[in-house]
């Protein structure tokens, strides 16, 4: 009777945990910024899988744990000991083997997702025109649309090449074909884009949360980095690797637009003569150091000497204001 009850409780709990895990896995998509690149969809699917399994493991362990805490309490004057159970070989083998299989599976799934993203290893400087990994041989465990989108983008048009320069504390984007520069990153939608990342001084991190991609920028080291924007809009590029005093202010806007608008923007920018762009770091630094007496009166606690920021970049296209906040 009690055995039957135990089995019943366990079954009901297992069903509940499974339902909760599925719900969490679905919920996990809402924890992210918009899916603005094909790669972001791959990542969100992977994350959802991890969330589901993670929830399952968490609830699967915490359930018996809490049950025990509620029902296996000592009575007030009960000074006796519990049963002297020291272990159970089978149980121990199971809970070693199951996690092993689980993490190996997760590693494998992660590996395949990583391959499909084809972001390029930073040290693989060989330019391949078609990422070999995008081959039908790799059946997708999830939705295959993102993969398809990457493939389409690569097949239908030449890869857009953009040089990215990071410095303390500014981002400068150079479009080599048109030879124009900008402090705002414009990208055509549904085209594969290849960045060449360079740093002029320290380590920086090229990070666009809406694309779910990130790559450190290393001085003396050109790094190739590819992605495929699939959704128009304005997003935020952030410096993700701590780069010194004005690190937090080292941001830029990313504008993904239809190809014709993008072409138009390139043409307009090519016609414009270079002007100094607004630069938050340089602005704050000059505020703090130029005005006599007004030194850093915008903060309560004053600071120490800093590496001076690079002067505001002189570019063909400069947004007239501080970067926009991304849509929330």
């Amino acid at each position: 009777m009690s055995k039957l009850r135990a089995i019943l409780i366990m079954t009901v709990y297992a069903i509940l945990v499974t339902l909760a895990s599925i719900w969490m896995a679905k919920q996990s998509y809402s924890w992210f910024p918009p899916e603005a690149s094909a790669e972001s969809k791959l990542l969100d699917d992977l994350f959802s899988l991890f969330t589901g399994l993670g929830t399952f493991i968490y609830l699967g362990v915490i359930g018996p744990f809490l049950y025990s805490l509620v029902f296996h309490r000592a009575r007030k004057y009960d000074m006796s000991d519990g049963p002297p159970i020291e272990g159970n070989t089978w149980l121990e083998i199971v809970w070693t083997a199951v996690p092993l299989v689980l993490v190996l599976t997760l590693s494998f799934v992660s590996y395949r997702t990583y391959e499909k993203m084809a972001v390029r290893g930073p040290m693989e400087l060989v330019h391949l025109h078609l990422p070999q990994i995008i081959q039908p041989a790799y059946a997708a465990p999830f939705d295959s649309t993102p993969q398809q989108e990457i493939e389409n983008a690569v097949e239908t048009a030449p890869i857009e090449e953009i040089d990215v320069t990071a410095k303390q504390w500014a981002w400068v984007f150079h479009y080599p074909k048109q030879d124009i520069t900008s402090t705002e990153l414009h990208l055509p939608v549904n085209r594969r884009v290849r960045f060449t990342l360079r740093s002029e001084d320290v380590l920086h991190g090229f990070y666009i949360p809406a694309f779910r991609l990130k790559q450190d920028v290393v001085p003396n080291h050109e790094i190739d980095f590819e992605l495929t924007p699939v959704k128009t809009g304005t997003y935020r590029l952030r410096d993700s690797m701590f780069s010194g005093t004005y690190f937090a202010a080292n941001q830029a806007d990313v504008v993904v637009q239809p190809f014709n608008e993008y072409q138009q923007w390139l043409a307009d920018a090519a016609a414009a003569s270079p002007t100094p762009a607004f630069n938050q770091a340089a602005f704050e630094y000059s505020q703090a150091n130029d005005q006599e007496g007004a030194t850093k009166d915008n903060v309560v606690v004053r600071g120490w000497d800093t590496i001076p920021p690079a002067s505001p970049p002189v570019v063909n296209y400069a947004p007239k204001h501080e970067p926009d906040s991304p849509p929330t």
Partner: peptide, 25 residues
């Protein structure tokens, strides 16, 4: 990922330790 295995062994062992015990908070 493999670090999860020894860590898991410990967590499962702890849950099994309190299971059926005479717990005092």
């Amino acid at each position: 990922m493999l670090v999860a295995i020894p860590s898991g062994i410990k967590v499962f062992g702890w849950v099994a330790t309190i299971w059926g015990g005479k717990i005092r908070f």
